[in-house]
Design a protein around this nucleic acid. Sequence first.
DNA 1: CTGTTAGCGCGTTCAC
DNA 2: GTGAACGCGCTAACAG
Lengths: 392, 392
Amino acid sequence: MNRFNLCDVIYFVELVQKFKSEVCNQIVTIAPAVASKLTQIGREMAVSVRDVARRAGVSVGTVSNVLNSPDKVSQKTAVVVQKAIDSLGFVRNDAARQLRAGKSRSIGLVVLDIRNPFFAEVSRGAEEAAKDYGLSVLFANSDEDFDRENSLLVLFEEQRVAGILLSPLASDLSEISRIRDRGTPVVLVDRKSRNKTFSSVSVDDVAGGFLAVEHLSQVGKKKIVFAGGPLEIEQIADRLKGAKKAAEAMGIKLELAVTKNLTVLEGRALAAEILSRPKKLRPDGIFAANDLLAIGIMQALVVAPDVSIPNDIALVGYDDISFAGTALISLTSIRQPSLLIGAQAVELLMQETDPMSNFRRRQVVFQPELVVRDSTRPQSPDRAKTFTQRSK
Amino acid sequence: MNRFNLCDVIYFVELVQKFKSEVCNQIVTIAPAVASKLTQIGREMAVSVRDVARRAGVSVGTVSNVLNSPDKVSQKTAVVVQKAIDSLGFVRNDAARQLRAGKSRSIGLVVLDIRNPFFAEVSRGAEEAAKDYGLSVLFANSDEDFDRENSLLVLFEEQRVAGILLSPLASDLSEISRIRDRGTPVVLVDRKSRNKTFSSVSVDDVAGGFLAVEHLSQVGKKKIVFAGGPLEIEQIADRLKGAKKAAEAMGIKLELAVTKNLTVLEGRALAAEILSRPKKLRPDGIFAANDLLAIGIMQALVVAPDVSIPNDIALVGYDDISFAGTALISLTSIRQPSLLIGAQAVELLMQETDPMSNFRRRQVVFQPELVVRDSTRPQSPDRAKTFTQRSK
DNA sequence: CTGTTAGCGCGTTCAC
DNA sequence: GTGAACGCGCTAACAG
């Protein structure tokens, strides 16, 4: 069978360490056998329920019961088994457990950008809710990249997670329905399922976009720029849609400035472009599709000698991340109930998982809220007031 | 054996859906049998390599080879098998795979606070590096809570992750060495292993603390407050140590203000306390142990009528998160190479994993860097300059 | 209450 | 190149 025993291997490893470069070719030749042997050694070290059972003088079934149904075991044996577990340093193998159960005890959360504080809040909400079901949440970051999103979905599906919370990048959800059909429930986060084929929890982005532009109009602005992109992201498209609706309703101009992404850097670049225009071609209000973008825009505008916020250009962001109120000029923004979104998403996932409940897929839509701050407030004689409002 | 067949179950489920409340008690009674049956039905739906093999008219071994060693299989059969996989919607079961391999293909990353942008950067660095090894990174958030940290470590160990990157909360690492001894390599992140029992990658926090206070002294400040806590967190303690060293070296006063955590809110509270003092008891410089805390302090100071930054009180943060430059008054901070930290941590983990390499545990220490901005710059006649410096 | 045992789905031999 | 058979560690069903 195996032409190598433990001593051979140890000798060989020592040899390699000493004459690494010389025996390089031989490593390649013999590697599989060595590797297999090393694996075996590793296995011998791993303690399993069987080892625990032997040590405790009981059967594996009893050990399993101690772990999973403590009430089925007498106090006395439970103590003996627990001692064996501790002294052997036994740790359950979740893979084996999962294989048997057919499902894992974690749910996967795929967000568009881990650095976006909005998603950090969502994940915290999800985590809290999941804890009540004895589940843990695995975060992952698609980084607004189709391939990454896809490979993460594959990863989670291969892991047989209890469910996936997805903030989808693609507008084509057919691949995702296929995942669902194969048995992994999926709930969409921050994106409404148009045809009701998915449960989803989202914020009414059209309403948010409307709120923002309506507000800009109400503080007297007439030439608004909508900044954001890519427009394939449905939330962005919706915010734009709401913005357009408001612009029409209020009878003001809306210019579209598509950005490559929603980062501070992109915001700066866009603002630079606007600043390069002659003054009369500049907008008097900017609605940025998220706060990071807005903050970038603000950075560039603030250092420009001939522009004042909000008098020359007023600025509205989206998400109301915690830094919105902390920006150089505190940022008016659209607030989304991020913690609630995460928690609600887990609830919907659990309904979908439960085979008993005659559940219907639900599209929960939260309403966003306008938070007015200095970036659109014409005069702010009393900054202390702003501060107090925020801190309550 | 089973007193229920499929028809019984379907009938029963329908019954439940119709008269949910009425049959509630009966559900409790019969649930185990039903659940088991439902599980079985679920299993029947799941397609395994066996199904693929049957459909393709080959054996399971061949299917496995197509998946894992394509070169061992003829082109023709490979195509046939691939077709079967696609048409059946087969998805590999990672649990089974892992069980066989003894190791999973992901590494766990436990950070102190997912909302802290510093850790977001670290995780991105780790992700990039892990990709090169064909591994994925699972994030998790200990939320600066001992119990959470512990249960996450258990979770990862049960999952038999390829390794754990840990930003540890506890100063007592004995439990963590036990994990390592049981076979899961651990690399400490953002924390040096004093006795060299762990590989670690960190930033020299003592040097960082020194830099901060030295700088405050150099801009003419004489009564510094160190703000941060809890001091059980070693990084915080180190920053304090460096601060003390600098204060001594420069012959200035250092007051210690311990906070409960490192959040914007705590910063505000601390600043409120300072503002409540008579003017001559106030410090003329504050060194906050991270940027979030510093930003909170700044918020409160800015709205105070009788304090100006940096003239009355200068402020230095730590981490140089991307918002530091964006704060109301751009924040002087200590920069840590966060992406590099994440990447380096994965490298060390891989060295530890490789049974061939005669590795030595290494403690990689990066040097922090002072980034001067308006919060300590006595006069800034040209704000545009600040901006340009940052954006390059 | 406890012991025995049959797989969960896959990867891996080893004969063919 | 291919296929049959074994076992990874665990759980749950059933027999004692």
